[in-house]
C-alpha cells in the first residue's frame, strides 16, 4: 500500500518543475521510504524480518502442500479424520502428533489448519484494516462534521459486541466460515479506524504537513501521500498482533457454536475442542499420560503464525519508518 503511493509521488514530482524547490523541502522533512528494491536489501539484512518471513513462508508452504503432507481420506478434506477413542500420545504409527478430542488426528489438523488460518486471518485483518484506514484517515484529517459523522458511525460498530454480531450474522445467514469472517470484519474495522484517526490527528499538525499545505497541495493529496504513509507504523503493529488474535477469536466463536464446526481443521477450533483434556489423564501402554499434545500443537502453530507476522512487521516498520532506525 505504502509502496505504491510512494512511486506515484516520485513521478508527479518529476513533471511539476515550477515548485520543485518547495517540494524538495517537504520531501526532506517527510521521512522517506526507499524504493522496493532497496527495501528488499534492508529486509535481507534485518534478521527479525527475515525470521518472520521464513516462518510465514514455511506455513504457506505447509498450507499449499497439505494434500501431499497429509492425504485426505474423508468426504471433505477440511474435516479431520477421527477414531472416536481417547487421545493417544504423539510419535505413534499413523499419528505422528497423537490424537485429540474424539480421537482426531492432530497432525492432520495442524497441516490442514494452516489453510484455514491463513485464509481467515489475512482476509479478516487486511479487509478490516483497509476499511479502517480509509475511514480513520478521512475522519482524522478533515475533522469537523465529517469526523463527527464518521466517528459516531464507527462508535456504533465499535460498540456492538463481537459475539453478538457474529451470532446475529450466523443466525440470519449460515453458520460457516465465510459468514464468520464477514462478522469478524464488521467488528474489527472500527478499532483500526480509531487508531488511524488518532495518529492522523497528531501528524496533521506536524511541520511537513504544514509545509505541504503552504505550497497549496490538495487536501486529499496531503492526506494520502503525506499523512497516511506516516501513520502506518502503529497500524502495522496492530495488524501483526491481530493476525494471531483473529485465529483465537475465530476459535472462541467456534467454541460456543458459531464459526467452523467441531472437527474442522482450524487451529483455534482444535484448541477449544481439546480444552477439556488439558488437565485430564489418559492411559496408554500401561501408564497414565496428561494429554498435553492435544492443545499444544495447534496452539504452538498459532504462536508461530503470530510470531512470523509480528517479526516481519517489526522489521518492516524499521525499514519503512527511518525515524525508528536512526
Amino acid at each position: 500500500m505504502a509502496i505504491s503511493t510512494r512511486s506515484r509521488t516520485a513521478a508527479s514530482t518529476a513533471t511539476d518543475s515550477s515548485i520543485i524547490s518547495i517540494r524538495d523541502i517537504t520531501a526532506e522533512l517527510r521521512p522517506r521510504i526507499k524504493e522496493w528494491k532497496n527495501s528488499w536489501d534492508l529486509i535481507r539484512h534485518n534478521w527479525t524480518a527475515m525470521m518472520g518471513l521464513v516462518l510465514i513462508i514455511t506455513i504457506i508452504i505447509i498450507a499449499i502442500l497439505a494434500p501431499v503432507l497429509a492425504p485426505p481420506s474423508g468426504v471433505d478434506a477440511m474435516y479431520i479424520p477421527r477414531d472416536f477413542d481417547l487421545p493417544k500420545p504423539p510419535f505413534i504409527p499413523g499419528h505422528p502428533l497423537g490424537t485429540g478430542e474424539m480421537g482426531a488426528d492432530i497432525y492432520y489438523g495442524v497441516i490442514w489448519g494452516a489453510r484455514t488460518t491463513i485464509v481467515i486471518s489475512l482476509y479478516v485483518v487486511l479487509t478490516a484494516a483497509l476499511v479502517g484506514l480509509v475511514v480513520g484517515a478521512i475522519s482524522g484529517y478533515y475533522g469537523g462534521v465529517i469526523d463527527e459523522v464518521l466517528m459516531r458511525f464507527t462508535d456504533i460498530f465499535l460498540s456492538l459486541p463481537a459475539l453478538i454480531m457474529a451470532m446475529a450474522i450466523a443466525s440470519i445467514l449460515t453458520r460457516n466460515l465465510e459468514n464468520m469472517m464477514f462478522a469478524l470484519i464488521i467488528v474489527w474495522w472500527p478499532s483500526y479506524a480509531r487508531l488511524i484517526r488518532g495518529q492522523v490527528l497528531t501528524i496533521r499538525e506536524s511541520t511537513y504537513v504544514e509545509a505541504a499545505k503552504a505550497i497549496g497541495s490538495k487536501r486529499g493529496r496531503i492526506l494520502f501521500r503525506h499523512i497516511v504513509p506516516n501513520s502506518l507504523s502503529p497500524l502495522i503493529v496492530a495488524i501483526t498482533l491481530d493476525l494471531g488474535a483473529v485465529a483465537l477469536v475465530a476459535a472462541s466463536l467456534s467454541y460456543i457454536g458459531f464459526g467452523v464446526p467441531s472437527g474442522y481443521a482450524e487451529w483455534g477450533r482444535m484448541v477449544s475442542d481439546g480444552q477439556g483434556w488439558f488437565l485430564a489423564k489418559v492411559p496408554f501402554n500401561g501408564a497414565y499420560h496428561t494429554p498435553w499434545w492435544v492443545v499444544s500443537f495447534p496452539a504452538l502453530m498459532i504462536l508461530l503464525f503470530t510470531m512470523g507476522f509480528s517479526l516481519l512487521g517489526d522489521g518492516l516498520r524499521d525499514i519503512l519508518d527511518p525515524r525508528s532506525r536512526r
Partner: peptide
C-alpha cells in the same frame, strides 16, 4: 469421557 482421569487421581 474423563473416567481415566479419575482412575489416575
Amino acid at each position: 469421557d474423563k473416567k481415566t482421569t479419575l482412575e489416575a487421581m
